[in-house]
């Protein structure tokens, strides 16, 4: 069973439908116990990081997420869920994240011609390290992004894939061991997105960047 973490900040219908489409058994839950009991966990972040961290703490979910990653449970963070695993984000005047990966989450520079902020749309994802999540997907495939901030892992070994936008090359997929995060939305990224979710639904949490 895959637990989709619901921390009350928004709508998770797209993620649930995509997983149901690939015939994964899913449960949308806000219960720390259910998250800890799940075989796999997806954290689809919604909204701004300050409010998200506050809600996670209020619901006791920050501890459950750290614990589930520490236990080796395959864990996928999406969008804000990709940013929140780092130590610090520039959003909302500076917010401490879960600290599961060393690194920060800076804002895209504003005002560059041709690069509206936030990035809303499709963009290329170039694989930098082999990873079970990428099986059957060509490096350079395009995924759907919606974001004004981007993951900047401190350790290059945690950069699984990269994407160019607004004069920056950023980690569109990052991870370590059983933890993987995508800045894009696999649940709305066509066939390649479903393939990535299918790979996650089969992933045992091994064979990541640290191996």
């Amino acid at each position: 069973m895959i637990a989709i973490v619901d921390y009350g900040a928004g709508n998770l219908t797209s993620v649930r439908l995509a997983l149901e489409r690939i015939a994964a058994r899913v449960a949308v839950t806000s219960e720390p116990a259910a998250i800890l009991a799940a075989e796999r966990v997806i954290f689809p972040g919604v909204g701004a990081i300050g409010a998200a961290m506050a809600r996670l703490k209020a619901a006791g979910l920050d501890g459950a997420l750290r614990e589930t990653v520490a236990r080796g449970t395959p864990f996928l963070g999406i969008c804000l869920g990709a940013q929140i695993v780092f130590e610090h984000s520039e959003e909302d005047g500076g917010v401490a994240g879960l600290g599961l990966l060393p690194g920060t989450v800076p804002a895209f520079p504003r005002g560059l011609p041709g690069a509206k902020i936030p990035q809303i749309g499709w963009n290329q994802v170039t694989f930098r390290l082999p990873h079970p999540l990428f099986e059957g997907i060509a490096s350079g495939a395009e995924f759907y992004f919606v974001h004004g901030y981007y993951p900047a892992p401190a350790d290059p070994a945690h950069v699984l894939a990269e994407t160019d936008y607004a004069g920056r090359t950023f980690a569109s997929v990052a991870g370590q061991d059983n933890l993987a995060v995508t800045q894009f939305h696999p649940e709305r990224s066509g066939r390649v997105g479903l393939k990535l979710l299918e790979n996650f639904a089969r992933w045992d949490g091994k064979g990541g960047a640290a191996c």
Partner: peptide, 9 residues
Amino acid sequence: MSDHKRVRI
């Protein structure tokens, strides 16, 4: 590769 925004249809 251009890092300009892709146009969407």
